[in-house]
Write a protein that binds this DNA or RNA. Structure first.
Lengths: 101, 101
DNA sequence: CGTGTAAGGAATTCTGACACG
DNA sequence: CGTGTAAGGAATTCTGACACG
């Protein structure tokens, strides 16, 4: 599966290499609620490949001058839209089953 | 794509958590030529998810009492077989194109 | 607001070696 | 052969803070 994409196994140093963002920036975007690394028992942050993809999107937005605030709102809206789409899909499937009864 | 699977971004501590193998064992299997982590400039080992899958296979074999030697031979044979299969596939494709000329 | 930096501590990783077997 | 361990050093990561703006 693509579950590897979501597994939180990458340390901040590697994320820095992969994204070009400083550790300071990476931690700050977490503080802003844009990414959510997992923590090991000892407090070390672990990121997934999807986190890295998100960080690259953030970096692009930031270069355009978009504030973390805006970026967060955009992310939430995108999520909301995909949730709605999923729900409509479920609705179609249900009506399909209802028709068959 | 599944290129994430092959990206060498995981440190040995995480590999230990994911496989249950000790760092000593993980490094030893590298010495035996069974896995090939990448090295950062400073010498830290980085593993991919495929490396982890390989390590889990190794662990299974070792539990059955198979020596690293045997395991390596098995891996090489498996590789050889898949290379041959690939070559035969290429042969078929070529003959297909030749027929059309 | 977003990011750099110096500070000090705690945990990580590395290598080469001795040990047991 | 395969793995544990203690040893010492080097690099990593973390937090809270001061700085600039």
């Amino acid at each position: 599966m693509d579950s590897y994409k979501h597994k939180k196994v990458i340390t901040i140093g590697i994320v820095n290499e992969l994204t070009g963002l400083s550790e300071r920036q990476i931690r700050y975007y977490e503080e802003c609620g844009l990414i959510f690394p997992k923590r090991s028992k000892l407090g070390t942050r672990h990121y997934s490949f999807t986190d890295i993809e998100t960080l690259i999107q953030i970096a692009d937005k930031r270069e355009e001058g978009v504030q973390t605030n805006e970026i967060k709102r955009d992310f939430n809206n995108k999520k909301k839209r995909s949730d709605i789409r999923d729900e409509m899909l479920r609705g179609q499937i249900n009506s399909h089953f209802n028709r068959r009864r």
